[in-house]
Design a protein around this nucleic acid. Structure first.
Lengths: 207, 207, 207, 207
DNA sequence: GATGAATGAGTTTTCATTCAT
DNA sequence: GATGAATGAAAACTCATTCAT
């Protein structure tokens, strides 16, 4: 990213935009896209309704911006985590750690994100589902590269296609994280990423 | 289930109810809860709008009934599959096989189901999310029992808490099935359940 | 027009439609298309807003229906008046008489009609201006036929193209009628059509 | 009009005002009063929205100024044309000629003008309709004076009240001009004013 | 018991106008 | 004196739900 000097005006604009999105995230994740009115968002963000429409073309655009920007943020954080080391196992550890942290800190957006990826999209018209799934696919590919290189290095046994392994790991992570999310008291937050990784690393059956 | 003798009247009623739900499933999964009107459902099901309201208290109730009944149907099918044999490995194989079949045949409801379990629920007010997650939890427990007994039998190594293993398996399954769902041409439908199970059975690393 | 037997239902529907249009005419002609809200119309017509939308697709549609139906009504009345006799001069007398009567009884719609024919159309998008001008053109043709036949019969001198004469007569009529409309006390309602026709019949200059 | 020496400041102001009105005319006549926003006008005129409001109290005021000034311009041109000669017939010829030219060069404003005179006014609240009709009435009086003097001179036969004749002539003119305006290819632009005047001058029937 | 016409609360969105900079 | 960001009132339209027939 280019480091750009923003004018005071522009910085102010950006801050306002953030505030609007923050209010929207909270409301959408709490009540779902269709149960939140633009007036509600405006009120929560403490702006006039017209001001919201200066920043976002319409409700769909606001929602789409929100999801896409957040998804990019997540993937960026995860990509960075992976790149921090060259060791494949350590990469996976970092990935699980960072993913856990992101989930923990962004529970509300995560729900929206899953509604779009897995559930029936709120904004089919906006083509949001396609866009978000495409980004997901791209990230899965970078994750798959770790398995590929690990297999080449003989650090991993080849128990499946690298892309499949990436998908499997990602889903197991999600599963555990949701478990913790929904019942934090019964399912302790997985501080040690190996709790999750072990299921992959050691085979269930022998030796 | 008790086998009850239903009068012709009652059987007729039940059939009508099914027709309504069938129309609703198609519409909801295609357009999402909030983009389908009760009139649309009534028209598709070929009933008067008032008749729909004789069967369901309101739109939320209709949706909730739909989701819950379908979820029960799925869990029933899976439970039956598990009970078909005593061998733990075979049980897991049956589970994966049946789950794949259910996904394949019910893509549309599955999407709605995931929107409710994972995403931001369409019907938070109705408490649908709670109810459906509870049922999911119950089923995870019966799945966990397989791992528990397998570990006791020494057929499985104890690489995690049984419940965690159940969750992990379920999520890996979902991951693969969505993969296939979204890009059937690139990701062949996993006919052999071992493609999925191997990731569990053989550990990634050694021996 | 076919004489059709309408069911009680259908008659009731038609009556409601009339009531809605009547309320709309009054409001539109008093305040102009854009200064009347659908709620206002609904209230004046004593229907719920939703009911209005059952009868008319949208505001434009309501307005268009209104104008077109009224224009047809006018032209029908005028055509009938013309056809009542074979004598060309008498035909023109009937025309002027009927036109006066129609103006007198429908001042409000007439205003709307002229806004669409002459002024900047309220509903350009709806293509209303085109449609209404086309109908006007058609009627001018039937009016022109009177002059044509009169000229052939040697009852009229050929002082211009028949179509031009029709347009001229129509406009002189409008001029006089508006005069009366706007200041009834100064400009007596032209009971005798010859007041208007004389301007045509006797040339200004000579013989 | 008093000839006043305007300061550079004042002249500059006047020029800006003209630019704003010019932009507004184009937009209003193309889309109609209610389909043009103040922002649009500001943009087209290349001024800030606030600057527009320094010149005009509000949208209505801008529109009213526009229409009234244009109407004055028209009437001034016509009055001047009438005054160019003393001969009554020549006066009428000049009137028709000038009116044709004005129509041809100002089609867009003419439409707005007619919407206000004849149709349902865009700005009833502003009392625009009254004001404009009053000016129209005044001009009709000066036109009537020609007929009056012509009748006194025995150049014209008295086939009606002078005011009525003025109205009739004006309306026949309008009729022909609109004819040409709407279908220029079928109705040639009346270069020779006598095409229009003959309808008045020679009586239809007789002599 | 079934029907579907009627209802009106609630939603998105626009745009004239103001006023701090 | 000019600017244009911010405002919020008001409009068109939808749709879950009711209830008289």
């Amino acid at each position: 990213m280019k480091v750009e000097k923003l004018s005071r005006r522009e910085r102010e604009k950006l801050r306002q935009r953030e505030e609007m999105l923050a209010a929207a995230i909270e409301l959408f994740s709490e009540k779902g896209y269709h149960n939140v009115s633009m007036h509600e968002i405006a009120k929560k963000a403490e702006f006039a309704i017209g001001t919201i429409y200066k920043f976002f073309k319409n409700k769909e655009d606001l929602y789409k911006s929100l999801i896409v920007e957040q998804a990019d943020m997540f993937h960026e954080a995860l990509t960075k985590a992976i790149e921090e080391t060259d060791d494949e196992i350590e990469k996976l550890r970092n990935y699980v750690k960072t993913k856990s942290a992101v989930f923990k800190d962004n529970i509300s957006v995560i729900r929206l994100y899953f509604a779009e990826t897995r559930g029936a999209s709120f904004n089919i018209k906006a083509g949001l589902d396609c866009e978000i799934r495409e980004r997901y696919g791209k990230f899965m590919h970078t994750l798959a590269l770790i398995f590929e290189s690990g297999i080449k290095n003989k650090r991993f046994r080849k128990i499946g296609r690298p892309y499949d392994l990436a998908v499997a790991l990602d889903n197991v992570c999600n599963g555990f994280l949701f478990l913790w999310l929904e019942a934090p008291e019964q399912n302790p937050y997985p501080k040690n990423p190996d709790v999750i990784l072990n299921i992959f690393f050691k085979g269930l059956i022998g030796p």
